[in-house]
Design a protein around this nucleic acid. Structure first.
Lengths: 187, 187
DNA sequence: GTCTATAATAGGATAGAC
DNA sequence: GTCTATCCTATTATAGAC
């Protein structure tokens, strides 16, 4: 294991803080204190706090899809894959102590204020839905009775709902319900 | 129509700003500028920015349930009521230009940082679910085949998912899908 | 590349006159 | 009740030494 580069350490520390306490609530001073560097070094690696935010979003997006792939490896049955994607989101909530979805969080905080961030979050959710769509389509090949688009939307919305609900309630009950619902959905 | 009291004007202006640009992104200075009052007056009516936040949440919660009641008045059929609650959330999104749910927003922004706010948001969502639960239970009286608790959870999560999805996409497509799904759900 | 010092501004909040 | 003036701290960001 190579030693962590300064650039990566800054980004890791900033990411944790942005995620846990929010972007606006996290000051540059706190980042440099916890990363144990001087402020001049931070601005040597990142041109602004906004630049750090963009790097954060890109990294979290990559992590998200890499983590998903790992969860799906060796699975071939589409019904199992759909079940696994629910488990994946559930696991993410558990391991983050129910901190919620990075992209819903940042949209809630920044809103219209930053079009680049809005567009990024929108694209991220589109990609998530595309993954589900592919799985549902695959599933429909052996079960042609289902409505592919409507089932995709239903599973996607149930998961999104479960994420916000589990974030508010600090438990994963919703995910267990979603698993039951989705099982009933797939003949 | 009585003239708006200063107290109410402060709260109205602050509420709009908290909702549209976020709590942390809204400064006291901006609030007093847009409410056209002096800072001393603000602190005469509200003891702190946090006090203003609590007043904001209470007001939005009251507005939410009052608005829902108005949407449901004259409706007796439980299936129609359930359909109306979806329309209500859809209408709220439309009229706020897809600004999202006040409570999901504040939780995303403040997170663990403020237990009072967390508890308030949690309770608010519980109340929403209770409303749906009552409707589903009523519906089940003439359609005993449905699973009341699971159907309640499903409708609740679909709506929550549609709210965040429509906030990110700036359109109400998800709500139209949810209406179709829920119609298919109720025999 | 990393550091310290500092700029320039905005944050929330208070005191006291009227 | 409303106002102005002010306090103290924190904010993001830059300059320049090493």
């Amino acid at each position: 294991m190579k030693k962590e580069k300064v650039h990566d350490r800054i980004l890791r520390v900033a990411s944790e803080l942005f995620y846990k306490q929010g972007f606006n609530s996290t000051g540059i001073n706190q980042i440099i204190a916890e990363a144990d560097i001087a402020i001049g070094s931070l601005y040597n690696h990142f041109s602004s706090k906004n630049d750090l935010l963009h790097a954060y979003l890109i990294k979290e997006e990559n992590n998200w899809f890499e983590g998903l792939e790992k969860s799906l490896v060796n699975l071939t049955e589409p019904g199992k894959k759909l079940s696994s994607i629910i488990d994946y989101r559930k696991k993410l909530q558990q391991s983050s102590k129910f901190a919620g979805c990075h992209f819903i969080k940042i949209i809630s905080e920044i809103g219209e204020g930053n079009p680049v961030v809005s567009a990024f979050a929108k694209r991220h959710k589109e990609k998530q839905k595309e993954v589900i769509h592919t799985m549902v389509k695959e599933y429909s090949e052996s079960n042609p009775s289902i409505d592919i688009d409507l089932t995709t939307e239903q599973i996607f919305l149930l998961i999104e709902g479960a994420v916000v609900s589990s974030t508010i309630n600090k438990n994963n009950d919703s995910f267990d319900q979603v698993k039951k619902i989705v099982q009933g959905l797939l003949p």
